[in-house]
Design a protein around this nucleic acid. Sequence first.
DNA 1: ATAAGTTGATAACAGATTGATAACAAATAT
DNA 2: ATATTTGTTATCAATCTGTTATCAACTTAT
Lengths: 227, 227
Amino acid sequence: MKNTSIEIVIIEDEEDILELVEYHLQKSGFETMGFLSTQNVEQFLEEENPSLMIIDRNLPECEGSEFVAELRKYGCNIPVIFLTAKDRDEDIEEGFIRGGDDYITKPFKPKELVLRVQALLRRSGITSNEKIKYRDLILDIPNRTLTIENNLVELTNLEFKLLHTFIKNPNITLDREFLRDEIWGENGANFNDKTINVTINRLKKKIDPTGEKEYFIPVWGVGYKLG
Amino acid sequence: MKNTSIEIVIIEDEEDILELVEYHLQKSGFETMGFLSTQNVEQFLEEENPSLMIIDRNLPECEGSEFVAELRKYGCNIPVIFLTAKDRDEDIEEGFIRGGDDYITKPFKPKELVLRVQALLRRSGITSNEKIKYRDLILDIPNRTLTIENNLVELTNLEFKLLHTFIKNPNITLDREFLRDEIWGENGANFNDKTINVTINRLKKKIDPTGEKEYFIPVWGVGYKLG
DNA sequence: ATAAGTTGATAACAGATTGATAACAAATAT
DNA sequence: ATATTTGTTATCAATCTGTTATCAACTTAT
């Protein structure tokens, strides 16, 4: 399953509204992640690096704009849209001062919400979050990191390139010649084919030390494929 | 708070409103340039490169959103806020679709307008009146100063540019080529890649002498990223 | 079924590459 | 003229990556 789409976090304690927002965003091609409170959101932000946040202000335990201010204090720069019933002038001002990018008051028009999301993403220079997922692997291309079940796994440059190539081509057997050209390029003239085995092996050990997940399936006499 | 050098174009055919908008923006430190129609605006954009545009839709001879769509077609990427009485759902949608970044309906609250202008400028990377934070670093762009835990840290011009570039691109590994282009520019033709190491190192030592905070994480064979 | 041959897995090693750091020199600004 | 900034070079240290050797697994021919 390939995914290069844009992910949006929504924090809203009223379930129907949360569902409504998620429905419209998904319909427009966004991936969404809903939360009923700010709990666990910070962890999620770190792990997933979503592209945008929509947040209510009247949340249980935590006031939405204070939460955003806190995030900003720690350098989190995610685009934020407040979606809230708090519509007094002072409320709106506070929302922007605390780091919001846009402020929509309830009741809201779903179509306008989507357009404002798109406008904000455009202006933030976000076209796609460039994350590729495969089974429980999450490859963050610009960040050059691999996350497996919320654990960061360190990869070398070569290993990253190799894994990227495989995840870009799932369910396809990549033969040794292809891998040599793709990963090692031209200078692989006098190139020991065992090098591929060794490199795959090192990668295997890093992302699946126990060997139980069988990510790389050897295809005899040909190459490997991702399983 | 000074916003010298940030210039905002306002296109509005009702003179009182134009004056009102200009008054509030100037009070917040912006330079303004008002137009009663779209006439001569294009020429002004080319010559002055203003940072933001506020535009009415019901203008004599020309519909504001069509004007913006036209600008966009020719590659003009200036942040645009519509300020208009056209408040039907379809009007608002049209405003965003034609390239607007924000949409404010009349009657409007001047304070909110200013805040929306500031938010949009911030998000557009026009930060000269802003501070950028990352972890415990506070970068004051107009003053070109760095504060760490309330201590002023002296940076050279080059170091400031480098740190700014990294903070503008969090969660992204910046490769050596990008850094060379971005920081050193074109004249880096015969350019020793070790220069990057050395410069990063000097910066590291200034902002984290003990090396315990690990701001700059080397990515082997690629570049660095902010940690 | 089995043995021979081929291919892949794994570990250890060594060379190569890359980054860190310090010292120096050139350039620039004050 | 002096101080500061910036680029270069040299040395050292860390890490990567290709090679080799050995063992294990698979294929095929008999």
